[in-house]
Computed example of a mutant assay.
Amino acid sequence: MTFALPLGLATGRCSVGGDFNDWRPGRHELRRRTNGTRSTSVTVSRGTRLRLRYLGENGNWFNDPDVADVDGSDTILVV
Rank of each mutant, 00 (worst) to 15 (best):
W23M: 02
R31Y: 08
S73Q: 14
D64K: 04
G59I: 08
R46T: 15
T34V: 10
V16K: 03
G26T: 04
G72T: 07
T48A: 07
R31E: 13
N60M: 11
R31C: 10
T43E: 13
R24Y: 00
S45P: 10
N58L: 11
L50G: 02
D19Q: 01
T48M: 03
N63T: 11
D69A: 13
V79I: 15
G72A: 12
R27S: 09
G72E: 06
G17A: 09
G26D: 03
L30E: 03
W23P: 06
S39P: 06
T11H: 10
G26H: 06
D71A: 14
G8D: 14
C14A: 08
R31H: 11
E57T: 15
L7P: 07
W61M: 14
L50P: 03
T34P: 15
N58E: 10
G36H: 07
W23N: 01
R49M: 05
T43S: 15
E57M: 13
R49V: 13
R53T: 12
P25D: 15
R49E: 00
T48N: 00
T11S: 14
T34I: 10
V70D: 05
L52Q: 02
V79N: 03
D69C: 04
G17T: 09
R13Q: 14
S73K: 11
S45Q: 08
G12K: 04
A4Q: 06
T37S: 07
R46Y: 12
T48Q: 04
S73C: 13
G36Y: 03
P65Y: 01
L52V: 04
G8W: 10
E29L: 12
H28A: 05
R46C: 13
P6V: 07
L5M: 07
T11G: 15
G8H: 09
S41R: 08
T34R: 14
S73N: 11
F62W: 00
L9M: 10
V44P: 01
L77I: 00
S73I: 14
S73E: 14
R51I: 04
N35Y: 04
N60H: 14
C14D: 00
V16A: 05
R38P: 07
L30N: 01
N21I: 00
V16I: 05
M1K: 05
G17N: 10
I76T: 01
L9Q: 03
V67P: 03
W23Q: 03
G12H: 05
N63Y: 03
T48W: 00
D71C: 11
D19M: 01
V44E: 03
G47S: 07
A68F: 10
D66G: 15
